[in-house]
Simulated assay, not measured.
Amino acid sequence: MSLLSVSESAERLGCQPSTVYRYIEDGVLPAYRIGPKLLRIDPTDLYALIKPARAAA
């Protein structure tokens, strides 16, 4: 399993790392702590955030 850093996750989503940290803090995106500081994100969890936009009626 290849986990992503916060920066890599932000790059894949096209957003800032602060947005990824906010998703983690809000409980929207699970993250795994490795040691006292390192956070890693499972790509499956990351891509689960991506949903189709609702089409205009």
Rank of each mutant, 00 (worst) to 15 (best):
L39D: 03
D45C: 14
P36K: 14
M1H: 12
G35Y: 00
T19D: 02
S2A: 13
L39M: 06
P17K: 15
L46H: 02
S9I: 09
R54S: 02
V28R: 11
L38G: 08
I50W: 03
P52L: 03
K37R: 14
V20C: 10
A56S: 13
V20T: 04
V28Q: 03
Y32K: 09
S7D: 15
Y32W: 03
L38Q: 09
A55S: 15
A10V: 10
L13M: 14
M1A: 09
E8G: 03
L46A: 02
E25I: 09
L49N: 03
C15A: 04
A31G: 12
M1C: 10
A53H: 13
A10F: 04
Q16C: 11
G35I: 05
P52S: 07
A10T: 00
L39C: 14
S5V: 09
E11T: 10
A57N: 15
L29I: 02
D42M: 06
P30C: 07
E25C: 09
L46Y: 00
A31D: 12
G14N: 11
M1N: 10
P43L: 12
L3T: 08
R40E: 01
L3F: 07
I34N: 10
V6I: 02
Q16Y: 03
V28H: 12
K51S: 02
V20D: 07
D42L: 13
Y23V: 05
L3V: 01
R40S: 07
S7W: 01
L13D: 03
A55N: 10
S9C: 08
L49C: 03
R22G: 06
R54Q: 12
I41R: 09
A56N: 12
I50C: 06
